[in-house]
Design a protein around this nucleic acid. Structure first.
Length: 490
RNA sequence: CGGGGUAUAGCGCAGUCCGGUUAGCGCACCUGGUUUGGGACCAGGGGGUCGUAAGUUCGAAUCUUACUACCCCGACCA
């Protein structure tokens, strides 16, 4: 099993290449770790964006946009926040270039900014600086705003899709009059993410809170969804933070409540990023390429004609275009690939690599018998059906494949999840079987770091409901409230 | 920033140890023809200042030195 997983992991870079072109400008180290997302990959992202955007609107949110640049002074107002992000900030120091006498271009030393600008690694600071002016009364609350944007984090080491220097994401930033309402919002949004992961990405996730050690810089509580990739490692796929009054205090955002008393606003922030694309690839791909859940596939069905001569092609064209039409009417996105310079086998392989859920082939035999060939991407099965049944059959297949992919991922996670009773057992599992391990922990950062150092496994989340009751910490033997989730993580 | 590796056509590589014709192969690309139910074949063709700079030499992809970039592993991190 482990070997298979490794070989598949090695293929990821190839599948990724179908989606992105990693920027490789030899003489410009500045774009290191950034990515160029190719049109096909971007169309998958767009699909995710449209679904998530609707989910946000349905939960009462609106979109807005804030500046890319954050004045350095804003950034340092929340102590923990700056501590968390200071090490990975890109900083703008000048606003002009000039030609030197030797014809080179250099930064004009005369054009130094009075105050450096940080390229946003996340937008809490500039948004809360703005919210100060938006809020006077409890009647101005809540503010339920989301932003679709790019952010930059100058990571020491990047990893395609999972940790790029620049990435696309959405960040929700909400302001509330009460603590309870903000906590409810935090919960609501992590559940929106879990719902999206399950029902659209077809990836099962664990919801939980982060330990003190892993919490978002500046948050009181961080909720996260954790997914398992096919090599058994965990991927944090979305986060929702309860920020308390930390940012309101830092940016002096106060309102008058019904009793005419001044109070600080309660805050949340939540986000998912292009990392979800990585999750999609690493959760479902097989050795033939991507496997896309039908609900997110930009093209759900591809039709490939098979013919020996022009006359046959003409006949097939008519049938294929009718089929395209009727499938579209049923709300299914279809592509008819009538390129005449490529053979069918090439096209089959290409669409498998791109993860198109269903392929329909129509050839001379089908024309005679009134059939067509259906090929499922998820199971790689092929079979013939009558042309007349095609719309109903394919429509049903969309749901079947979506479910099947989810079930596969879910079974895989189940098969690679363990419970460890002792630390010895824990170490052995982590060493031999990559996966999730539920174990008792005493709740201290000290123990968490010891485990991390000795096993490379990190505490992924503390579940909202413990799978078992209380017990004793596997390392120290001190009391534990319940089992928490450990895994090696990306 | 530490340890290791790499740099030759759009992509993937050979050639470098041991210097010597016009730098080669596969894929991709262009033209023509035959093909087409799982990644076609034949013929012809285009594309390279061999990462950059300096040095050694009659002669450098090959040897020397410096520099730069990229990849993998660690520290760091969504």
């Amino acid at each position: 099993m482990a070997k298979e997983l490794t070989s598949r992991a090695e293929n990821y870079s190839q599948w990724y290449n179908e989606l992105v072109l990693k920027a490789d400008l030899a003489e410009n180290s500045a774009v290191r770790g950034c990515m160029v997302i190719k049109p096909y990959g971007y169309s998958i992202w767009e699909k995710m964006v449209s679904v998530l955007d609707k989910m946000f609107k349905d939960t009462g949110h609106q979109n807005a946009y804030f500046p890319l640049f954050i004045p350095k002074s804003f950034f340092s107002k929340e102590a923990k926040h700056v501590e968390g992000f200071a090490k990975e900030c890109a900083v703008v120091t000048h606003y002009r270039l000039k030609n030197t006498s030797s014809g080179q271009i250099e930064v004009d030393p005369e054009a130094k900014l009075e105050e450096e600008l940080i390229i946003r690694p996340t937008s809490e600071t500039i948004i809360w600086n703005t919210y100060r002016n938006w809020v006077q009364s409890y009647r101005d609350l809540p503010i339920l705003v989301n932003q679709w944007a790019n952010v930059v984090r100058w990571e020491m080491r990047t990893r395609l899709f999972l940790r790029t220097a620049e990435f696309l994401w959405q960040e929700g930033h909400t302001a509330h009059a009460t603590e309870a309402e903000a906590i409810e919002e935090t919960n609501k949004m992590i559940n929106v993410y879990a719902d999206f992961a399950k029902n659209w990405l077809a990836v099962p996730v664990h919801i939980g809170t982060k330990s003190d050690n892993e919490r978002f810089a500046g948050a009181i509580e961080t909720y996260a969804i954790e997914a398992m990739m096919q090599d058994g490692r965990a991927l944090q796929s979305g986060t929702s933070h309860f920020l308390g009054q930390n940012f309101a205090r830092a940016f002096d955002v106060k309102f008058l409540n019904r009793e005419n008393k001044e109070e600080y606003v309660w805050a949340t922030s939540w986000g998912v990023s292009t990392r979800l694309m990585g999750a999609l690839v690493m959760a479902h791909s097989d050795d033939n390429g991507l496997v896309l859940p039908p609900k997110l596939a930009p093209i759900q069905v591809v039709i490939v004609p098979i013919y020996k001569n022009f006359e046959q092609l003409e006949q097939i064209n008519i049938r294929a275009r009718e089929t395209v039409q009727s499938l579209r009417e049923a709300g299914i996105s279809v592509k008819y690939d009538d390129r005449d310079n490529l053979r069918p086998g090439f096209k089959f392989a290409e669409y498998e690599m791109k993860g198109i859920p269903v392929r329909i082939a129509i050839g001379p035999k089908d024309m005679e018998q009134g059939t067509c060939e259906i090929a499922r991407r998820d199971t790689l099965e092929k079979y013939n059906i009558n042309q007349a049944e095609i719309v109903e059959h394919v429509a049903n297949l969309m749901a079947t494949i979506q479910e099947n992919i989810y079930r596969k991922a879910s079974d895989f996670r189940e098969a690679n999840t363990y419970k460890a009773e002792t630390y010895e057992e824990f170490k052995e599992i982590m060493d031999k079987n990559p996966g999730f391990v539920w174990a008792h922990w005493d709740g201290t950062t000290e123990t968490e770091l010891k485990i991390q150092e000795e096993t490379k496994a990190t505490l992924r989340c503390i579940p909202l409901e413990y799978p078992d009751g209380p017990g004793k910490c596997m390392v120290t033997g001190k009391p534990s409230k319940g089992r928490v989730l450990f895994a090696k993580a990306y």
